[in-house]
Design a binder for these strands. Structure first.
Lengths: 253, 253
DNA sequence: ATCGGGCTATGTCAAATGACACGGACGCGC
DNA sequence: GCGCGTCCGTGTCATTTGACATAGCCCGAT
C-alpha cells in the first residue's frame, strides 16, 4: 500500500507561507502577515505521506504537530480486539496531533487517505509559542473548538440516526468540507473512501453499509462510489439527514 | 421542575478563588497564584441553577462563559423531530460554553443535572483575556483538548460497542470523573440520572436501556439505580467495556 | 498467464435493538 | 385522600442491523 518514496521524511521542499496553497480557499480565513511570519519561523519543514501510510501511531509518543497543506487524512482509534472507530476525516488547514501537545501517549492513530503533504512543527516549542504569540494560540483554540464541534455532529449521527441517515450525513459532511478547502466542486468530491472505512466511521457492518449505499443511490440522494462522493442536491440531503447550518470560516496555522 | 429561587441569576455570593472548592480535588491541578488573580479579575460573578433548569439554550446567542464550581451539567443537542443526543456530562472544573466564544449560535443546550453553582465570565472579554494572558489561554486550549478526547471516547462507544458495553463504559466514565472531582467515592457516584437520559446519551431506546441495565446488575458489573451509579470492580468493568487508560490531571479556570 | 488480495455485490439466516402497550411505584400539589 | 406526572419494569412483536458464505471484478506481483 505504501508506495515508498519519501514516506514521512521531512523533505527538502518547503513552501513559503506566503505561497501557501490554502490562501485561496473558500472556507479558510488566512492569518495576517505578522502571524504568517511567526508561523513560518515555527515551521520545521514539510513531510509527505503516501496513500495508506501511517502519519501517527496510536500509543506512540508524538514529537510533532502537523498542519495539512494538501491531502486528506483520517484519525482513528483501535480497540484491542481489532475493532476500529474512525473519529474524523482531516482536510487541508486542519491541525493534526494537538492532543500530543498535552498527553504523553497518542490515543489515536492518523493515516493518509490520499497522498498528503503536511507542515511540520516541533512539539517542544508549542508551549513556548503559545506563551509568546497569544494570537496564534487563540487560533489553535478555535481550531480545537471546531474539531470538537465536528465530533459532536458525528456523535449525534451515531446516536440518533439510522444507517441511511448516517450515510447521507457523512456524505454531506465530507462534500461540505471538501468544498470549503477546495478539494470538491459543486456537490462532488473525488476521493477514494472504501465502504469498509465508511463502516468503521459510522458504526455499521460492512454489508449493511453496502446495502444502505445502494438504497441511497437508487433514491438519488447520494451517489457514493469507489472514487467519488456525489450529493446531487445538498439541500434535500441535509433535510433527509436532519442536518442544520453550514459551517463558518475557520482560521489555520 | 425549576424550583424557582435564584434561577440563573447572578447572585450576590462570590466565592473568592483562593477558597475555591476545587482546590482539593484529586484530578485537578490548580492555577498558580498569578493566574488565580487574573481569573478572579475576569470573573463576573456566580450563578446558581436548580436541577433541571436550562443553563444555555440551543440556538441562542450566548453572552457568558461558565466554569463549574459545584454540581453536574449535561450538554445536549436537539433534532427537529424531537430526538435528543446528550453530548457529554460536565463536572466541576469544566469549562462550559467555549463554543459560544467563537460561534454566534449555540449548537447545543446545557442543563443542570443536579443543583449547580457556576462561575460566570463575560464572553466579550474572552478574546482580550486570551491576548493578555497566554498562560490562561493555554489552559483553555488544554481543556478544549480534554473535552475533545472525551467526545472521542463517546464516539468509540457509540460506534463500536453493544448496549451493555456502552452502559458499563458510561458508568465507568461517570464514576471516574466523579472521583477526580470529589463527587464520587470508591466506585460509587451518588447522582440521579434517569434511564431516559442514559438512553439519549448512548443512542439506545429507553426499553433496551432498561433491560441492559438489569442484565449488568445481575452480572454484578454495574449497579445503576435512580439515585446512584455503582461500579463494584472498576478494573473488570473497564476490561468488559474494553476501556484503556485512566485520565490525567487537568487544569481549570 | 496466473495467482492472490482487496474491494464491491448478494443471498440467507440470526441476533440485537426498537416499538407499542401496559402496570405499578413514588412524589407532589390541591 | 386524590389525581397527575414521571419514572421504572415487563410482555409481545416488528424492524434494523449483523453474521456468514460466496461470487465477481480489478489490479499488481510472480
Amino acid at each position: 500500500m505504501a508506495t515508498g518514496g519519501n514516506s514521512g521524511r521531512i523533505g527538502a521542499e518547503r513552501t513559503p507561507c506566503r505561497l501557501c496553497p490554502l490562501l485561496g480557499c473558500e472556507g479558510l480565513s488566512p492569518p495576517d502577515e505578522t502571524q504568517r511570519s511567526w508561523i513560518e519561523a515555527f515551521k520545521a519543514g514539510e513531510a509527505s505521506y503516501a496513500r495508506g501510510e501511517q502519519v501517527m501511531q496510536q500509543g506512540a509518543r508524538a514529537t510533532r504537530l502537523y498542519t495539512i497543506l494538501e491531502g486528506v487524512l483520517l484519525r482513528f482509534r483501535l480497540l484491542e480486539d481489532g475493532r476500529r472507530q474512525i473519529l474524523n476525516f482531516m482536510f487541508p488547514g486542519d491541525l493534526v496531533g494537538l492532543q500530543s501537545a498535552f498527553d504523553a501517549e497518542l490515543a489515536h492513530g492518523v493515516e493518509a487517505l490520499i497522498d498528503a503533504r503536511l507542515c511540520v512543527f516541533p512539539r517542544e516549542r508549542f508551549f513556548e509559542l503559545a506563551m509568546s504569540h497569544p494570537r496564534l494560540s487563540f487560533d489553535v483554540t478555535w481550531l480545537a473548538a471546531r474539531e470538537e464541534a465536528s465530533l459532536e455532529e458525528h456523535l449525534v449521527a451515531l446516536g440518533q440516526r439510522n444507517a441511511r441517515e448516517r450515510l447521507t450525513y457523512l456524505a454531506v459532511y465530507l462534500v461540505q468540507r471538501g468544498m470549503e478547502t477546495g478539494v470538491a466542486r459543486n456537490g462532488v468530491l473525488r476521493l477514494t473512501v472504501t465502504q469498509g472505512q465508511v463502516a468503521d466511521m459510522l458504526g455499521l457492518s460492512l454489508v449493511h453499509t453496502n446495502r444502505s449505499m445502494q438504497a441511497l443511490r437508487r433514491a438519488g440522494l447520494v451517489d457514493w462510489t469507489m472514487t467519488s462522493i456525489a450529493v446531487p442536491d445538498l439541500e434535500s440531503a441535509r433535510a433527509f439527514a436532519q442536518m442544520e447550518s453550514e459551517p463558518s470560516k475557520r482560521p489555520y496555522i
